[in-house]
């Protein structure tokens, strides 16, 4: 087998042909549904809408979010939820809807839902799973928590792209010198407890350089097994710090949830087994 063939096979096995435990996808599905409720609850609830279109959008979105959380017709539900969120994003972009709907945290949530619908995310932690188990006749074999995961790989690529391109945006003197971070902090922290940070311009520059280096590194490291553990720790720490320092809305929690897509499905499966007091099953993927 030639090198290009081997490379092609390796990429295919990792990407479009990926399959394995559906527990990480199931966990992501429930979390993304909850995040959708939190993000749009105050925008699309009946008390917040002014007309029938808003009401219809709200009913559809919350129906799909509910079905996504409980895992009823899971793949269709999360696909519907993702499409609804992207409709809201489009309405935000065109200023027909709220301008905030065009923000990056809405896009990340919507695209993640759509990509997750390309996995068998209903085979774990879902009503679909419950039905499959209870429908199994006595003595029958319980369906496997195993399925296609190519959407999970696309989520991993989305995270890598996000880190890379946001780092590209920061690759200029205005950011590296700390000026852009200082501007951001002037807007957000002036007159607030952390205003004291503005007295440390050198720290602003150092923090900016650190963020830039970490984001370029994360773009690659999250995809490489040998660096993944460190990347996840550093990435989670960075996103947690965003929550403290910046009004990130649901962006950080969405990305933190999507880190499940980076983990080895076998490891997540075994971890859940151990948490339930069961011996991890022997799995091949």
């Amino acid at each position: 087998m030639t090198l290009p063939q081997r490379l092609s096979d390796t990429i295919a096995a990792w990407g479009p042909d990926a399959e394995g435990s559906t527990r990480p996808a199931g966990l992501m599905r429930m979390a993304l549904g909850c995040i959708a409720f939190v993000r749009f609850g105050s925008d699309l609830a009946p008390w917040a809408t002014n007309g029938p279109i808003g009401l219809i959008l709200g009913v559809l979105l919350f129906y799909f979010a509910f079905c996504t959380v409980i895992g009823s017709r899971s793949r269709q539900s999360i696909a519907g939820l993702g499409i609804m969120i992207m409709v809201l994003y489009a309405l935000g972009v065109t200023r027909i809807g709220l301008e905030e709907w065009s923000h990056h945290h809405v896009y990340v949530l919507g695209i993640a839902c759509i990509l997750l619908s390309m996995t068998d995310c209903g085979r774990s932690f879902s009503y679909d799973r419950y039905r499959a188990v209870t429908d199994t006749p006595p003595g029958g074999v319980i369906p496997a928590e195993h399925g296609m995961l190519w959407g999970q790989r696309l989520i991993a690529l989305q995270l890598a792209a996000l880190y890379f391109w946001t780092a590209v945006d920061k690759t200029d003197w205005a950011f590296v010198s700390g000026q852009r971070l200082e501007q951001t902090f002037v807007w957000i922290h002036s007159g607030r407890p952390l205003e004291v940070l503005l007295d440390w311009p050198v720290m602003m520059a150092l923090a900016s350089i650190a963020v830039l280096v970490v984001e370029y590194w994360l773009a690659v490291a999250i995809l490489l097994p040998k660096w993944r553990k460190a990347a996840i720790f550093i990435g989670l720490t960075m996103h947690a710090s965003f929550y403290v320092l910046l009004p990130v809305n649901t962006y950080s929690i969405t990305v933190m949830v999507l880190y499940l897509a980076l983990l080895d499905p076998r490891a997540v499966h075994g971890f859940v087994d151990r948490m339930l007091g069961q011996r991890p099953a022997e799995v091949t993927q």
Partner: peptide, 14 residues
């Protein structure tokens, strides 16, 4: 599905 997750069931290609 490989053994270990339960029964061998067909993977649903999306």
């Amino acid at each position: 599905a490989p053994s270990g997750f339960g029964a061998a069931t067909p993977v649903t290609p999306l």
